[in-house]
Design a protein around this nucleic acid. Structure first.
Lengths: 213, 213
DNA sequence: ACAAAAGTGTTAACTTTACACCCATGT
DNA sequence: ACATGGGTGTAAAGTTAACACTTTTGT
């Protein structure tokens, strides 16, 4: 019996979730896009396996994976029996940009509501991971990972609106977020876009693991 | 490589959580207590495996297992490499009583803060399951499974106090619970104990999946 | 009659919601 | 000057928290 670790790595750009996929170069599902994954070797834990299979694609280690779901349908892999265990992690978009040495023909980020042809049962894996992510991202520590510094409140608000599936009042959002005492102004302002520039914030050093909204 | 499903089956008696364990009759860990578990066979899913390994111990099927955690340390089993996937389920105490044909020398319920000698890494598995349970039990559908009918509000309050780790005001608890509109009076009263008998309640037909407290 | 546990109502503090105008920048 | 998006305050409604006495049963 084989066990594989599967990684759903997410990022947020303009309030939209994106997921990391790579294109399979061999059969089965040649040319389809799949999540990074790796068979667990005898001397490796699941956590080590998931870390290696992602580092292999984008060169990033130490990303704080969290376990998500399992997939054990007997026929989920057409060539052999493989039980899959999914993990999720999030990564901020600046870190991605500084690692954009990746070949976008074979590794790329896709918006979750506009995915390419997906191989194996990875559509299900992605769907399950997205649900889990949507819960987790409401926690302050997850927010901090994806918005490490120099974010604006409108950015975070857009993300919340997507997660929660409805719009939020700007004034109330701001009041609640600031009252939580998790963030502080950097003193700078965003630039480059239309309209009045937004203030930039950063998370304070010791963010509690607090559920917001 | 082997994969096993491990089941943490909980019940609540007098506001105390108990977990189902059985005593190992063979080495390794002969005489120690462990959670029901079973190796996943080639033609079985994890869910089928966990269901079978519990039914084998207490004769109950169809218990709505939920996935909980994974355990993949290389040396967690001294004889061979086994990756463990844990599931939790809850069961109401009346159902247990009507199935008490079990041999309490080899299968028994233990309070989670007073466990016997535990084999393998099952202490960790139990600890992880307890944390998960404590979150889940705050949801109305989980409550309904463990208190299907004819429960009193003081019973549920005791359970909440244990889960949340602090006492709750009886009047406020009652107000909040009743306002949620999830339960209705049966018309009967509890009996047999000291003091004024408590009203009995049942959950309404279609309980929403609502987080209380 | 007494002990034990359940049931009940009111008020103050806090939280959440709803809502409209002004401000800083780019074009 | 105008279009774009960001920033701010207040009042009403709802929710939570604090608190003490009465009721029903068993002994």
């Amino acid at each position: 019996m084989n066990i594989e670790a599967i990684a759903s790595i997410f990022t947020i750009v303009d309030g939209k979730f994106k997921v990391l996929l790579f294109r399979k170069k061999t059969e089965p599902y040649k040319g389809y896009w799949v999540l990074p994954n790796g068979i667990v070797e005898k001397d490796k834990t699941l956590e080590e396996t998931v870390e290696e299979c992602v580092a292999d694609k984008i060169g990033l280690w130490k990303m704080d994976y969290e376990q998500c779901d399992t997939f054990s349908a007997v026929d989920r892999n057409p060539t052999k029996r493989v039980i899959g265990i999914s993990f999720i992690s999030i990564i901020d978009s600046r870190t991605i940009e500084s690692h954009m040495n990746m070949d976008i023909d074979s590794v790329n980020w896709f918006e979750i509501d506009n995915l390419p042809k997906i191989g194996y049962d990875h559509s299900e894996v992605i769907a399950s991971s997205v649900e889990t992510l949507k819960w987790k991202i409401r926690n302050s520590w997850a927010l901090k990972k994806i918005f490490p510094s120099d974010f604006t409140l409108p950015e975070i608000q857009k993300m919340y609106e997507q997660v929660l599936g409805h719009e939020l009042d700007r004034r109330n959002f701001r009041k609640k977020f600031l009252k939580s005492d998790l963030i502080e102004e950097t003193g700078d302002k965003a630039s480059g876009s239309n309209g009045r520039p937004a203030k930039l914030y950063r998370f304070k050093e010791n963010v509690e693991n607090k559920l917001l909204f």
